[in-house]
Amino acid sequence: MPELTESVTFRHEDWYGEELADRHFVGCEFFEVDLTEAVTRGAVFTGCTFGNVLFNASRHQDSAFTRCVFKRCNFFEAQFIGCKMVGSTFVECQLRPLRVDGGDWSFVALPGADLRGAWLSGVRMREADLSGANLTDATVAGVDLSGAQLQKCRLGGADLRRSDLTALDPTTVERAGAMVDVEQAVVIAQALGFRVG
């Protein structure tokens, strides 16, 4: 059984390089905690709040951060592999360069996020709020963006191949130089009112 911690507030803690495996935090608050180079494996954070937390160069594998709130946190070179982030919200966070491989980030709120050059691959982001996000030169490959909010997204130079773009209105985004595959090009043409024959 994972070790359970409920409704605890952590302030000014130094968890640099810590390994958190099979821990379960519910309704906890983390303020100015240093998780630089920390590793989580199978850890679960449910309904937690993170304020001014350093996630720099941290690595998270098969962990879950569901319905969490991240405020002014730094994710420089953080990696999330097979993680579940369903329903979490990011506010004024530093997210570059972020790497996400697989997992479920559905219903995540990232409005206006600076994700230039980010790597998002094979992740589910159904109904995610990416309105106004800057994904310039990002890799967004094989991502399920069905139902996502993408208005006013900046996608210039982004690699969007194999991603679900059915929710994309190409007239509301910056798209110069964005790369799509043939199937996506058909979807985009149809969204613009073209009949493809």
Results as ranks from 00 to 15, higher is better:
76 F>C: 03
86 V>P: 08
66 T>P: 07
90 F>R: 10
61 Q>S: 07
114 D>F: 07
62 D>G: 11
95 L>H: 13
106 S>D: 12
94 Q>Y: 12
71 K>Y: 04
112 G>E: 13
119 W>Y: 04
117 G>V: 09
95 L>F: 13
85 M>E: 00
79 Q>I: 03
85 M>S: 06
63 S>Q: 01
87 G>N: 09
76 F>E: 07
70 F>Y: 06
96 R>S: 15
76 F>T: 02
110 L>E: 14
100 V>Y: 13
67 R>D: 12
69 V>L: 10
83 C>H: 00
92 E>M: 08
71 K>G: 05
80 F>S: 01
88 S>A: 05
94 Q>D: 14
65 F>H: 03
68 C>M: 04
70 F>A: 02
115 L>R: 06
96 R>P: 09
74 N>F: 07
69 V>A: 09
82 G>H: 10
61 Q>D: 12
78 A>V: 01
84 K>V: 14
71 K>P: 04
109 A>E: 12
103 G>P: 05
63 S>C: 03
67 R>A: 10
114 D>Y: 13
104 D>C: 14
65 F>Q: 00
88 S>H: 04
99 R>P: 03
91 V>G: 08
75 F>V: 01
101 D>S: 15
76 F>H: 03
76 F>D: 04
118 A>N: 00
115 L>F: 10
102 G>I: 02
93 C>P: 10
116 R>G: 10
71 K>W: 02
117 G>C: 09
99 R>Q: 10
93 C>F: 13
64 A>Q: 10
93 C>K: 13
97 P>H: 11
75 F>M: 03
93 C>Q: 09
88 S>P: 02
86 V>I: 12
77 E>G: 08
78 A>Y: 00
114 D>W: 09
96 R>C: 15
103 G>W: 01
81 I>R: 01
91 V>H: 14
98 L>V: 10
115 L>T: 05
72 R>T: 13
75 F>K: 00
67 R>P: 00
86 V>A: 07
89 T>Q: 04
106 S>W: 05
94 Q>C: 06
115 L>K: 09
65 F>T: 02
66 T>K: 12
61 Q>T: 09
119 W>N: 01
77 E>I: 13
62 D>Y: 14
113 A>N: 09
70 F>M: 07
110 L>N: 11
104 D>T: 14
70 F>C: 08
74 N>H: 08
74 N>A: 12
86 V>M: 11
114 D>K: 01
94 Q>V: 07
113 A>K: 04
119 W>E: 04
119 W>M: 05
100 V>D: 12
97 P>Y: 06
86 V>Q: 09
85 M>H: 00
91 V>R: 11
117 G>K: 05
65 F>A: 01
119 W>D: 03
101 D>A: 15
79 Q>Y: 06
99 R>D: 00
91 V>C: 12
68 C>G: 04
80 F>R: 00
110 L>M: 15
115 L>Q: 05
89 T>W: 02
72 R>F: 11
69 V>N: 07
116 R>A: 04
88 S>K: 04
99 R>G: 05
76 F>S: 01
102 G>E: 07
65 F>Y: 07
101 D>V: 14
119 W>C: 02
67 R>N: 11
97 P>F: 10
104 D>V: 15
100 V>Q: 12
74 N>D: 13
63 S>E: 02
95 L>S: 14
72 R>Y: 13
103 G>R: 00
92 E>H: 12
83 C>S: 06
65 F>V: 00
88 S>W: 00
69 V>D: 09
108 V>Y: 00
80 F>Y: 07
80 F>E: 03
69 V>E: 10
104 D>W: 08
